[in-house]
């Protein structure tokens, strides 16, 4: 029987999760080891975001368990199929996040807070791909950043590598 833990989101929703799934988060693992986690584990993450975090963790957990049960024979073919499955799952996961930027940024912060390096790296790459082709003004809006250059300063920097602004 798997050990279950109850996670409590910032808006007081309870998520029942297997220990193995949630131990991927170094932050929660430490809380469990320190004995701080009796009963419900309160987290500074909204239920919407936490649901996404758990979706990721379960998918990852799946992968590691299957690999452990593998024997070496025929592994290559199986691995390739698995890679395809994971890619497909990741694409779907990315598409959902791209459609809702608030969730994406919240998830980014949550993966940092919960210490989930694989998810953090995945999300950073996702945002990088979204940002790569954009113009400075679009980025300011997207990240809510104030332009602290004077128009002259901005013009000078733009002129330095003018070709970078061409498509």
């Amino acid at each position: 029987m798997a050990i279950m833990y109850a996670l409590k989101s910032s808006d007081n929703e309870i998520f029942e999760v297997e220990q193995k799934v949630i131990e991927q988060s170094e932050t929660i693992k430490k809380m469990i080891e320190d004995g701080a986690a009796t009963g419900e584990i309160p987290l500074q993450v909204s239920s919407k975001t936490l649901a996404k975090v758990l979706e990721w963790c379960k998918q990852r957990q799946h992968k590691t368990v299957e690999n452990e049960n593998d024997d070496n024979k025929g592994k290559r073919k199986k691995e390739r199929d698995e890679d395809d499955d994971i890619k497909e799952w990741e694409n779907k996961f990315s598409d959902e996040l791209k459609a809702d930027k608030d969730v994406l940024f919240d998830l980014l912060l949550a993966s940092n807070y919960l210490d989930l390096p694989a998810l953090l790296s995945f999300l950073c790459q996702l945002v990088a791909d979204m940002v790569a082709g954009k113009m400075p003004e679009e980025i300011r809006r997207m990240f809510n950043i104030e332009n602290d250059f004077t128009p002259e300063e901005e013009k000078a920097i733009t002129a330095e590598h003018g070709w970078a602004f061409q498509p």
């Binding site: 940002v131 082709g133 300011r140 950043i145 332009n147 602290d148 901005e154 970078a164």
Partner: peptide, 11 residues
Amino acid sequence: KSLLRLRCVCK
């Protein structure tokens, strides 16, 4: 190329 462009975002 993206980074040279995004230098203009802020200081």
